[in-house]
């Protein structure tokens, strides 16, 4: 790129003034010119060349040694200029990648989209917020032909893009299982094999799968190493942990999961969450699950969706609005 002539002339004048007077003002003027060069992507070797030409015009009688030394500098600046160009190309590439990731994130949202089902007598609330652009938590609702409701909540170890890709795989595996194989135990058995075969050894997934049968008012469930959920019993006004043993998905190929069940009565609530909820921190202090339950208890008279949003806001404020991990909280209340 040709340096604009007037800039070259100005540069020469500033150089002359500085050599003769050592006036800082001249230096400042040259700096301003260089700044416009940077903006116009003018390479360092072009600037050195400009300097050589200006100097030669001002002092035609310079010794050949000085002249050669100047040219020497010019040559070495060429590789510097190339590195700079590379850096600029990388910066552009980075911006490109960033915009691709945000496209991927919105695509993931579409892929993993699940609709909160309407089942009479049940009130469901759910919130899922990623710590970074892409979410490694996952929840999904499935309505069975027999009127049952399947609820999956999962957390993939690891964050960011790989975690998110993994979640899409889980969702499509579950979707492909035939309906007669949809018991919580069977789903986890099958998913474990899918994850074990397809995912990097240091990556694994925790999942809770529950199935609610409105006719018998029973919740059957199984867990693959997932953070335990809670059952709020309206009659006694107490919470109990929904304990379920099971290894995380993807570690051993032949893991068999146990299935459990419990009766859900009127006014009861089932609370499912990911470790982003229990790993919230208040400064250096961790938030204990009791505190999560206290908030839920405080908001228990609100509709389920309002409850999860209020709980989230509470912990978000407590952590200065900076999530360390993806946060998913799901509550379902049995109204009648």
């Amino acid at each position: 790129m040709d340096v604009v002539k007037s800039d070259a002339a100005n540069y020469k004048n500033f150089l002359k003034e500085f050599i003769e007077t050592q006036n800082e003002r001249a230096l400042y003027g040259a700096e301003q010119i260089i700044k416009t060069f940077i903006k116009r992507n003018i390479s360092p070797e072009e600037i050195v060349n400009l300097h050589i030409l200006a100097f030669a015009e001002l002092y035609p009688n310079i010794t050949p040694e000085v002249h050669r030394a100047m040219n020497f500098l010019l040559e070495t600046m060429i590789s510097y200029g190339m590195a700079l160009q590379e850096y600029q190309a990388l910066r552009e590439k980075q911006l490109e990648l960033q915009s691709e990731i945000s496209v991927a994130a919105s695509m993931q949202e579409t892929l993993l989209l699940t609709e909160k089902p309407c089942i009479s007598g049940l009130d469901i609330g759910v919130i899922s917020i990623p710590a970074q652009q892409m979410n490694g938590d996952y929840h999904h609702f499935m309505k069975g032909k027999d009127g049952s409701l399947g609820i999956a909540i999962a957390d993939v170890i690891g964050k960011g893009v790989p975690a998110a890709l993994c979640m899409s795989m889980i969702k499509y595996s579950v979707d492909s299982f035939p309906e007669e194989a949809m018991s919580p135990q069977m789903i986890l058995n099958s998913l474990n094999r899918v994850v074990e075969r397809n995912v990097d050894p240091s990556m694994f997934i925790t999942m809770f799968y529950g199935q609610y049968h409105p006719d018998s008012e029973m919740l059957t469930y199984a867990s693959a190493g997932h953070e335990p959920g809670f059952h709020y019993c309206a009659e006694t006004d107490t919470f109990s942990e929904i304990k379920a043993k099971g290894l995380v998905l993807g570690v051993l190929p032949d893991t068999e999961y146990q299935q459990y069940e419990r009766k859900i009565n009127k006014g009861d609530m089932i609370i499912l969450l990911t470790d982003g909820v229990t790993e919230c921190r208040n400064g250096e202090e961790f938030i204990e699950s009791d505190e999560v339950l206290e908030r839920i208890h405080e908001f228990r008279h609100l509709p389920a969706q309002e409850m999860v949003e209020k709980v989230y806001r509470y912990f978000e404020r407590m952590q200065d609005f900076h999530l360390r991990d993806d946060f998913t909280l799901l509550i379902f209340k049995k109204r009648v």
Binding site: D155, I157, R324, D325
Partner: peptide, 13 residues
């Protein structure tokens, strides 16, 4: 004093 789930992945690996 603190380990998150990333640590579990490391130990499994």
């Amino acid at each position: 004093e603190y380990m998150d789930s990333t640590g579990l992945g490391i130990f499994i690996g």
